[in-house]
Structure formats: structure tokens, C-alpha cells
Design a protein around this nucleic acid. Sequence first.
RNA 1: GGGCUGGUAGCUCAACUGGCAGAGCAGCGGACUUUUAAUCCGCGGGCUGUGGGUUCGAGUCCCACCCGGCCUACCA
Length: 529
Amino acid sequence: MPLNDQQQARLEKIRELRAQGVDPYPPRSSRTLAAADAVTRFVEVEPHLGGQPDPEPVTVAGRVVSIRDMGGSVFSHIRDGSGSIQLFLRRDTLGAEQLAWFKRYVDLNDFVEADGHLFRTRSGEISLQVTALRLLSKAINPPPDKWHGLTDVETRYRQRYVDLMTNPATRQVFVTRALVIRAIRRYLDERGFLEVETPTLQPVYGGAAARPFTTYYHALDQTFYLRISDELYLKRLIVGGYDRVYEICKDFRNEGIDARHNPEFTMLEFYVAYADYYDIMKMCEELIVFTAQEALGTLLLSWGPHMIDLTPPWPRISFREALLRYTGIDFLTVTDQPTLYRLARELGADVRPDTVWPRILDELLKTFVRPELIQPTFVYDYPVALSPLAKRKPEDPRLVERFQLFVGGLELANAYTELNDPLDQFYRFLEQARDRMRGDEEAMPIDEDYINALMYGMPPTGGFGLGIDRLIMLFTNRQTIREVILFPQLRSKPEPLGLTEDLQPYLDLVPGIHDPLAGEDFPVEANSG
RNA sequence: GGGCUGGUAGCUCAACUGGCAGAGCAGCGGACUUUUAAUCCGCGGGCUGUGGGUUCGAGUCCCACCCGGCCUACCA
């Protein structure tokens, strides 16, 4: 597929510029003010100017995002990271030759810098009366539709750079994302937490129920796994004597991709010695409220058709009550699988005759409870079989001290009083091993070293995990996790963009290259992105 | 994995029951010295996702495949 007419025209302009001795990609800019700062400056000095342009020369720079050619004058907006400013290129000011040069060689998407004087146009827009203009970087690809922007979802994800340069809303999502993560760090740092880094490549995976990605470590001649969780490492650090640790990291789960799941996602986990799950619940509430205030400045969130109010305290409902309320089933009295299965089927839950008892409970929670929990809600005290790393409730060993936070129908956080009894932990691992033998690929393998760590003694500890991506979804009102991940996972395209072939005729435009390699018959292979 | 749905110009989208593949923006040429999606005149631009098939004739119908989206399943 050859380059299109617009790309060819722009490459020809590069050829002409090179021939004129103009570098289309100079190494430096001499910008003196960001676009937004230039506007601010003019607002400040304007009262003293008596309607005249600011006599102080300034230089602004940015991407050309619009050009309106009026003949003897041209209006053009340029945009940098701070914002945008209008350039006014006037034949009388710039000179006929420079104006013609601009019209001939500058296209949308190019980066330019302009010297000139700030002033206000008749229609009231603060602009730069341009006295000189230089090309900073020549763009070969034109921008998408100036009014609709780029809307094709696939292209938006595959070529996120185009999405970002076109759609301000997309840029804002990732600004919010950064603010959220910054606020989380601040909250934890101010409370004496130690930020740590634990292995991404793990010889034994654990801390969650999921299929891992597998890789091979040549130097060690051994199979490794990309972490599905950092939980077991962080608790080793509690054993080691740190009282408060946290890590924000990518976890990897080799599972389906949908609106709430990306195989590679960002998780916050923190652990607090001498705390239990009630303490953690309180911190969870504080952390999310703090983060919303810092990143959004409000506790009221639009979420699809709903308004979510994060004002604490958030309601707490036990797993048992929740199930009772939304399904009428009391799981503490329905302890046999066949009866639970029958009741679940009567409610219309998608369970099979061989679905094990705890999985049916989980299915009921997901189907009937979770979608109802739009306002922030803690569900607590889970059945032990669903939670192999959580401590049992002393007054009822069928339950564990665990809670999950649901907001907007999303499972946002998961926490428990950590199981620190090495023998009980060993027993839970054995149960997992049994499930594994029965074909549950997601059951955890036994981690002997972790048991060994617990055998050295771990203080009573509360632990917490938060899905950062889902929190960002909630804060930015995005219903798809892909919208809050810069480069979400997509299947590779079978045919590449074709640039490897198409660009070869233009290699002579690279300065200093006398032997362009293009004539050599090397295989045309490219990443498809 | 299953169901539904989509892929047409650089971008956003049309094209009835199978009958000459179109528009807007962008581009190219021209006019215009305060515009704001500038305006006006003119002109180019297509492997209709890929490969087969049916037909006098396929963007349209059939089959297979590729890549998306939604739902579902899986994801304690």
C-alpha cells in the first residue's frame, strides 16, 4: 500500500527544504514562553499597553493545529503541552517572502516556533503578531478530521498518540490518573509507609487465584512466572520487621479481556502490622476520599446514569446479609452443595451441577449483589473457602475477616486480616493443592518459603489491595478499562502498516546517508503494533 | 469458546431490492490583510479488511479467514 497523496506531498516538501539548506528537524527550540504563559503574560501587561502590542518580543512554539489563510494574512493556532495560542501572520509584519514560505511549507501537525509581539485581535483573542517563523519538526502524516477527531476505537487504542493529540478528553483521563496515583503515594507516605519493590518475575506465583503468564529464564535454566500479585512478598517484609509497606505495581493475569479486565493491570497493595480488617476498612475509606479530593476536588462522581457520593461513612453489610437481602439465601444454613445449587438455579444463576459450593456463593454475589452496589459499600466476613490467605473469625471459623469494597458495581478493593498462623496457612495451601489436582487451574500452588516465613512469626497484620485502573474508571466516568490504560492489550494486526517498504524511496533525505541500504534486498518485516 | 454487530478516500460518514462508489473535513490550484469548523471558485484522491464462490454484473448475496466493538462464558 503506497503512501497517500498527502504524505507524498509532505515528503516532497522535506526534499525541497533540504535542498534549500533548511533543516526540517532542527535539534533545538528557542521558545521563551509556553503558550499558556504567553497568554497569562499578556493579560498582565495589557492594561499598560494602551491598545498597542506588547513591545517585549517573545517566542512561542508548538504543533500547528489550524491554519486560516486570508490571503495577505494568515491565522494559525499552535498548541504545546500548556495550551494553545493564535499566531497572526501578516504580510506587512512578516514580509511577503516569509509569509509565502509559511504557506508553501507549513502544514497541519508540523511543529513551529514564532517570534513576535503579543496583542489582542479585533475579535478579542490574545494572539502573537509574528515577526519571524521557523520550522521545528515536519509532520508527514496529516491530522484526523478536525471536527470529529479520531473516533475509531481500534485506532484510538493502537495509535494512542493520535488519540491523545486529537482528543483533549483522552489527555485529561491520563492527567487524572497521574493525580490519583500521586495522591495515593502522598496519603501513604505521610502515614509512615515504606514504598518497596518486589519481584515481577517469580519462581512461584501466588497471592491470588489466576492463571499466570509463563516465561523462561535462560541464565537460571528455570521457568518463571509474571506475578499475579505481590501479596506474599509484601507479607514477607512484615515478617522482616517493617510495620507498614506498600507497592504500586503491574500484576499480570493470563485471562480474558473485557470491560473490567486487562491482562496487565495496576494494583496498590499495602500491609499494616498491628492492624485488623476494621482498621484497614477505615483507612480504605480515608484513602479514597483523600484521593478524590486531591485529584477531582469533589466527592460526587458521575457514573453512567448514576451519581455516586463518596461522603463517608460508607455502609457495611456482611456477606451473609448481602446474600440474604438480594437472593434470600442464608449460606450458613445451606451448607450442602446440591441444595445451594438448586436454589441458585431457581434464581437463574449460571451455575452447573459440578460447581463447588464456594463458587456458587461467589456467583450469587457477582450476579445478584454486586450490580446493586452502586454507592460505596463494604461487604465483609467471607466464607473461608474463598479466601485462602485470610484469618478465620475466632467466633466462627467458617468465616474469615475479609472485606471487599464495591462502588459503581465494580469490585474495587479487597482486604483482610492476614492469616499469620503457619499451620492454618499450610492447611489452606493443601486445600488449594487439592482443588488444583481436581483441575482448578487458578488454585494457588503451595509456597513453602512463605510458610517458612510465617514460621518465623508475623504480627497481627491487616492487608489491602486496590485496583488502580478501576478506581480511575470510576473517577473519570469511563465504562471500559481500556479507556484508562494508555496502551491496552490488542491482538496484533497480521499486516504491518507497510512503512518498511513505503519509506525506502525517501531514505536519501536522511542527511549524511550516501548509501541508503534501500537497494539491498533485505526481508521486509515489521512489527504490526 | 458462543451469540450479535462492524471494517468503504488521510479522517468522519453515505451508497434502496445486486446495476456507473459519493459527501463533508483534510489535500492540490485560484481569490481574499483581523479569522475562529473562515468564506468563495475549481481539481485530484478508492485492492470497499483478506481470499474464494454465485451472477451478465458484488461494497451489497454465500463460504472461509483476519482485526475490532457489544453481550455472554471465563476471571474466588
